[in-house]
Design a protein around this nucleic acid. Sequence first.
DNA 1: TTTGATTACTTAACACTGTTAATTAGTTTT
DNA 2: AAAACTAATTAACAGTGTTAAGTAATCAAA
Lengths: 214, 214
Amino acid sequence: MGIKERKERHREDLKARILEAAKKLFVTDGYEATSIRKIAAEIEFSPTTIYLYYKDKTDIAYALHQEGFGLLRERFSALVYVDDPFERLKAMGKGYIQFAVDHPDFYELMFIMKEPMQYLQAHHPEEEWPEGERVFNGLMQTVEGCRAKGYFAGMNTEEMAMLSWSVVHGLCSLHITSHFKHIAEKCSEVAIVKQDTFLEGVFQAYLQLLERMK
Amino acid sequence: MGIKERKERHREDLKARILEAAKKLFVTDGYEATSIRKIAAEIEFSPTTIYLYYKDKTDIAYALHQEGFGLLRERFSALVYVDDPFERLKAMGKGYIQFAVDHPDFYELMFIMKEPMQYLQAHHPEEEWPEGERVFNGLMQTVEGCRAKGYFAGMNTEEMAMLSWSVVHGLCSLHITSHFKHIAEKCSEVAIVKQDTFLEGVFQAYLQLLERMK
DNA sequence: TTTGATTACTTAACACTGTTAATTAGTTTT
DNA sequence: AAAACTAATTAACAGTGTTAAGTAATCAAA
């Protein structure tokens, strides 16, 4: 029967198919609504089969978190051709925000939720979040490049990189959790029609601050 | 009609007792682990009784969210005596961060989780998050005061206030979700021993940026 | 005073959730 | 052919938020 054929088809990369199904449900319904049983139904397996390939739900969450970082790095990879470090820093910020707007669910899993980070701390205590470090190192290099060109005189590279991240993360985080919306609507009197325009505006204000740091 | 009033008082009392029990469980076990059944057990009532006083769990979440804003405003109320607006802006940032460190669970409910905001949007669509607006207005006034003293020339007040908020929220958010930790530990080579010191350091870096904006 | 309505609360149940133990079917190895 | 190993299953546990239906007690009107 067809059932047997299906079982034969992809048995080796069943782990990959589980993640694929999880991702599909996750991007449409969100993480909380993506249950083990729904994932199992999607790939037409028993719910408990999932546990033969993933330790628990946070394990899947971490795998999706990694997928998200793949998407983010893909976006950032285009920016290596921006020679001027300060221009690159600006472009990274813009790209980061755009990523959060385009993939709010992934962003949530990567930077807002506690789940994957707790999983990491519990199961890989020495590995220290490689995905995050990799991206952060890229940011640090760019900040370092800015300093070499005379920007951010007398400031610590790590702290400056962390500050840059905090600004854009603060914006993205408040945007996704819809805190931003409530405030932005109130400020609409000053010709701020669209929410994204305000988001962009605040980021531009930050760039103005940086611009004066040469 | 004295009886009716007494009954009403009793009713308000029970509603308050439910919230009190919820808060107790919430600060010790966190929001997710605070179940309706546990709250009910705490006040020795049936679980369904909760629903006679609160619409659903998000209703309780919003009430706790309001409690949190009470604590935050309490903290901010001491800062009205800081006359210089720029000093007050700095003090507000420091106070905000300290609040997040002292009450991470409340902070999460107020600024990180989607739940209470979604509840607000669903049940009070026109009220527009009064707690948030009230605090944000205080921030805007302070920024306006800074501008009056020559700071932030040529910059929009709303955007500048939003930027200030985003910076500290970004820091607090990444701190609470323990993203910060993983990065901070990596940067420990540069004599950054404690996590809070790094948190403070990044905030100081932001203040340095602002300082040069006069 | 008795009847009927209202109030405050409870019990029972639904439809889920993540997760584990025990069990079956199928394939290898001995 | 028997034993061992593997992959997937069924059944079950302990919990979740939430709703419908039922039960006592209290109140107002006849």
